[in-house]
Design a protein around this nucleic acid. Structure first.
Lengths: 181, 181
DNA sequence: AATGTCATGTAACTAGTTACATGATTTA
DNA sequence: TAAATCATGTAACTAGTTACATGACATT
């Protein structure tokens, strides 16, 4: 266990893109709606404190003339190492079943932090896992079709279609990366 | 605020379909992977206790001969009222942005608890909100395209395609309900 | 003068995670 | 007899939510 939460990794990734204050990070979450992370100060400031306590980010007070002092956070070498280790985690079935959105967040940061070659490898793993998972879901529907209400079945089918769409997305994204090589 | 968590509503919905023990509920979460709810006893048993404490479910000890006593939970009239109120909540932009999966869970229970007419209304609200949200995302990509990495842009596009797919799903589901009338 | 935005934080509460405990019954 | 499954629960920890506090500067 790394002891870093999903929010923690999201913060690390954004700070890695460019140094930012807690307020800036909050704005990113409110305005871009990337992922479903909280923009509440009660989540972000303590999370930054934890990261700083582990030496993964460093906050330096910035006094740009008039306004209240901002703490601008920068990622440390240790922070970058931990962040890259997170990005490099293999794509597991568990991730596909429970945290697809988290995988997409990881992928979003990948090009910049690890380079296109790794992004391509990620997509291949992603596609493979989704390919394996879809038939499982289809079998489940086939087996339980009789006992399900219409809305129950439709909801499940929406989920399956979602995986099919992500698989197509992964394949066309793989093609984009391969064309670039 | 109702003070009932997402997990709480999921449990209420399943118990409403048919009375079940904590162990049965855990199995549902492990085997069906509907939503991303925990199958850990440390989540489910306390949640059931809270529901029982509020009088939303009632647990009765069942002694089917040999095995250890099971507590089978049944939904109470108050529980059913609270559950239906949850299902009837309007579909907001917030739900679309942050909790699409929770909306799908609500929809899955809808036919049985409220009838097809309400499911249809839900789908119409859902489609409307998604229709409004997609252009926002497209504009965001258009505005930030230059600053984004390839994987960053692709991740966002995967999200947008996901909404497009759900919109199509909602429309074809609406058609299914209308044909039935 | 009042409101809004920049900016950081804390405190109380709540619920979920992980890990453990218990014990009976069935199967290998 | 050892292991797996049925079945329920607790305890310690952690992190996120909501709401509040503070205060300077900018705008109306």
């Amino acid at each position: 266990m790394t002891g870093i939460t999903q929010l923690g990794f999201a913060l690390l990734g954004l700070i890695n893109q460019q140094p930012m204050s807690g307020y800036d990070l909050r704005k990113v979450f409110t305005t871009t709606a990337l992922g479903s992370y909280s923009d509440s100060p009660g989540a972000i400031y303590p999370a930054l404190k934890r990261l700083a306590g582990r030496g993964l980010v460093r906050g330096s007070v910035e006094k740009t003339g008039a306004l209240r002092t901002r703490r601008v956070f920068t990622i440390t070498p240790a922070g970058l190492t931990a962040f890259k280790a997170w990005l490099k985690r293999p794509v597991t079935r568990q991730d596909i079943v429970r945290n697809v959105d988290d995988l997409l967040l990881r992928f979003a940061f990948m090009d910049q932090a690890l380079g296109a070659r790794h992004s391509l490898r990620f997509l291949e793993q992603f596609a493979e896992q989704v390919v394996n998972y879809i038939p499982e879901l289809r079998e489940f529907v086939a087996a339980h079709r009789a006992e399900m209400s219409v809305s129950g079945r439709l909801a499940l089918e929406c989920g399956i279609e979602g995986y099919r769409q992500r698989l197509e997305w992964a394949r066309s994204s793989i093609a984009i990366y391969q064309r670039r090589k």
